[in-house]
Simulated scan of single mutants.
Amino acid sequence: MRYTVTAGDIPSVNTTSTDPGSIWSVDGPTDFTGKLWMITATSVNNVLNAADDGTIWRGPNLLSIIQ
């Protein structure tokens, strides 16, 4: 799982790379204002799995809105 916070729109994510983008963090924020988003991937033995179409990351999913 990776997390990010935005003020508005759905954040971008590189779904076919092991690195989904610099805005995504392993640690969720503890204090924020805005929208909290999460993406997920599955792994076996710490190796990320890719679907047949190359997709690794799923989402983003909106978790919370704090205003």
Rank of each mutant, 00 (worst) to 15 (best):
Q67Y: 13
A41N: 03
N45T: 11
G54C: 02
W24C: 00
I23A: 15
T30M: 11
S17T: 10
V5C: 12
D53S: 06
I39N: 01
N61G: 12
T30G: 11
N61D: 10
V26I: 08
D52I: 10
N49H: 06
T33F: 09
V13R: 02
D53C: 09
I65D: 09
W24L: 07
T4G: 06
D19H: 05
G8I: 04
A50T: 10
G28N: 09
G54D: 03
A41H: 07
W57I: 01
A7M: 07
S25A: 14
A7L: 10
W24V: 00
L63W: 05
K35R: 11
W57A: 00
P20E: 01
N46I: 06
Y3F: 15
T16W: 04
T6P: 05
S22C: 02
D52H: 08
S22I: 10
T15Q: 15
P11S: 10
P11N: 07
A50G: 01
G21I: 02
T15W: 02
L48V: 04
W57V: 00
V5Y: 11
A51Y: 05
T15C: 13
S17N: 14
V26H: 07
L63F: 05
V26K: 07
N61Y: 15
D52Q: 15
A50M: 09
T16V: 11
T33E: 14
D9Y: 14
L63E: 13
N46A: 14
S17A: 15
I10W: 13
A7G: 14
N61E: 15
P20K: 02
Y3A: 02
D52C: 05
A50F: 03
L62I: 05
T4W: 06
P60K: 05
P60F: 07
S64W: 12
T55R: 03
I10E: 12
S43G: 05
K35P: 05
D27F: 12
Q67G: 06
G21L: 02
Y3Q: 08
L36F: 04
L63I: 15
D53W: 07
P29E: 04
L36T: 04
S12Y: 01
D52N: 15
I23R: 04
P11V: 01
D52R: 05
V47I: 13
T33Q: 10
T4K: 03
V13K: 00
T33V: 09
S25F: 12
N14A: 12
I23M: 08
A7F: 10
D53I: 06
T30E: 10
T16F: 04
L48Q: 11
K35T: 09
A41S: 11
T6S: 01
Q67E: 13
G59R: 10
G8R: 13
V13M: 00
Y3R: 12
N45M: 14
L62M: 15
G28Q: 11
